[in-house]
Amino acid sequence: MNIWIIGGLLLLIVFLLVKGIPVNFTKPLGKGAIKLTIGILFLFFFNLFGASFGLHIPINVFTAVIVGLLGVPGIASLTAIHVFLI
């Protein structure tokens, strides 16, 4: 069973080396990864400065995606949820 998985991955790698990675596929993935990274950094700095006020938003995929897509309004909405609901 493992030989089939390894063989399939090697075949995929050879195919991508010969044919090339489609640009239509990698461009949205790159933008999504950048937005996710920016969301994580925003949350990190918010937690760093918000600790003096007793605010903490956990850094996970869900909160990072919200902050990455919405930016500052995303942090504000997560803070409002944290303050008023939790």
Rank of each mutant, 00 (worst) to 15 (best):
I66R: 10
L69T: 15
A51I: 11
G50M: 02
F45V: 13
V65T: 13
L55N: 07
S77I: 14
I75T: 07
G50A: 02
P58R: 12
A51K: 13
G50R: 03
N60H: 05
G74I: 09
L43T: 00
I66P: 07
L55I: 01
H56W: 09
V72S: 04
V65Y: 10
S77Y: 15
A64W: 06
L69R: 12
L43P: 00
N60R: 02
F46H: 11
F53Q: 15
G54I: 03
L70E: 10
P73A: 08
V67K: 03
P58W: 10
L69I: 15
G74T: 06
L55V: 03
A64Q: 04
A76M: 15
V65A: 14
F49D: 08
V67Y: 09
V72A: 09
A64D: 02
A51N: 12
L48N: 04
P58Q: 12
S77T: 14
G54P: 02
G68Q: 10
G54A: 06
P73W: 08
G54R: 03
F49H: 11
G54F: 09
L48H: 04
F46P: 01
L70D: 09
F44I: 12
F44N: 13
F49N: 08
L55K: 04
F49Y: 13
I57W: 05
I57V: 00
F53M: 15
L43K: 03
H56C: 06
F49A: 11
L43C: 05
F44K: 14
I66H: 10
L48V: 02
L69K: 13
L48R: 04
L70M: 14
F62Y: 06
F62H: 01
G68F: 13
P58S: 12
I57G: 00
I57P: 00
L43I: 00
I59Y: 05
N60G: 04
G68L: 10
F62M: 04
N47C: 01
L69E: 14
I66S: 09
G74C: 06
S52W: 10
I59P: 00
L55Q: 08
S77P: 03
F44A: 13
V72F: 10
G68A: 13
F44H: 14
N60L: 03
S77F: 15
A76L: 15
L70C: 11
F45T: 10
G74K: 05
G71Q: 05
L69V: 15
V61E: 08
S77R: 13
P58C: 09
A64G: 04
I75E: 02
F46T: 00
V65D: 05
A76N: 11
G71H: 08
